[in-house]
Write a protein that binds this DNA or RNA. Structure first.
Length: 155
DNA sequence: ATTCTGACA
DNA sequence: TGTCAGCA
């Protein structure tokens, strides 16, 4: 449309990741079903934290992690727990999730085809790293399998 | 329009 | 915890 040789402006767009997602208190309230009154109270009690702002703004910002925590607390609340107990239970749950996530990240080494079957590489089975553990699904059942590490691949 | 703090028929 | 006031 415009033929003038204007300098090309390169638009830098921040990648939309969970880590840079931020919510204001009203949004978080709608997302979680927890009232803004509750969110402010929970913060005052130290149950949930807000993002420290570098700019001169006063309104609260919540991270995605805060969203998750609020959601978990809410679930325990709905299950009948008192607020403090719900927070304690939520902390335990989130800590367990961290462990599970670490295990999953560490264990999953990728997918490989072995004799026409799809195998999940779960990494070395032994400390000496002479065997790898694979898991596959055969007719709906989980099947584990040890495979020798070939000599061509020393470590 | 939304958020904030404080107070309570 | 809800809600409303009175600000910013």
């Amino acid at each position: 449309m415009n033929s003038k040789p204007h300098p090309k402006k390169l638009l830098k767009v921040k990648k939309p990741t969970l880590d840079n997602m931020q919510f204001r208190i009203g949004e978080l309230a709608r997302m979680t079903g927890v009232s803004t009154r509750q969110l402010r109270y929970w913060e005052k009690q130290g149950y949930v934290s807000t993002i420290v702002r570098d700019d001169g703004q006063e309104s609260r910002l919540y991270s995605f992690k805060a969203y998750v925590k609020v959601s978990v607390i809410k679930q325990y609340l709905d299950a009948g727990e008192a607020l403090h107990d719900a927070v304690v239970a939520a902390n335990v749950t989130l800590k367990d999730v961290k462990v599970i996530q670490h295990i999953m990240r560490t264990a999953f080494q990728g997918l490989e085809m072995h004799n026409d079957k799809l195998m999940v590489n779960l990494g070395f089975f032994d400390e000496q790293e002479t065997k790898r553990l694979y898991v596959s699904i055969e007719s709906g059942k989980v099947k584990y399998q040890l495979v020798d590490v070939p000599d061509e691949e020393p470590k």
